[in-house]
Amino acid sequence: GPIILESYRVISDYSKTSKYEINLLTGDLVEIVEKSPNGWWFCQCDTKRGWVPASYLEPLDGPEEPEDADPNYAGELYITTQAYKAAQDDELTLETGETIEVIHKLLDGWWVVRKGEETGHFPSMFLHKTGEKK
């Protein structure tokens, strides 16, 4: 049968930063082709197709419905594959190869992680799951 794509509404203007992305205008409707866990979603809008940040979209049906998974305060062990320096005060700065605990996997690609006493957002694309249990 036909593939029904999920529709989302654009909540803020977005200017693309690479040729595989598309520009968005507030109120545009887009259809989602693929959701990458790193927070980039491949979508089509009219005749355009490309990657857009999931954080700029809300579901067309029931925007109040939370789509994110529940937080897991026990934490899942991940290792950082790239260093990242916090650009906002709710983010964490981490070096490559640090073991941290993921406590909330947000669809926008900025997971909530814990390192010691510190908690903050970190790009999920710079994290790799470790095989070990705590």
Binding site: G39, W40, F42, W51, S55, W110
Partner: peptide
């Protein structure tokens, strides 16, 4: 065909979304 997603982190949610979540 679908290319690989960008290899840089996506932007943080716009202010509109942050207010909604708060």
């Amino acid at each position: 065909s679908i290319k690989l997603p960008p290899q840089n982190p996506p932007p943080r949610p716009p202010a509109e979304m942050r207010r909604k979540r708060a």
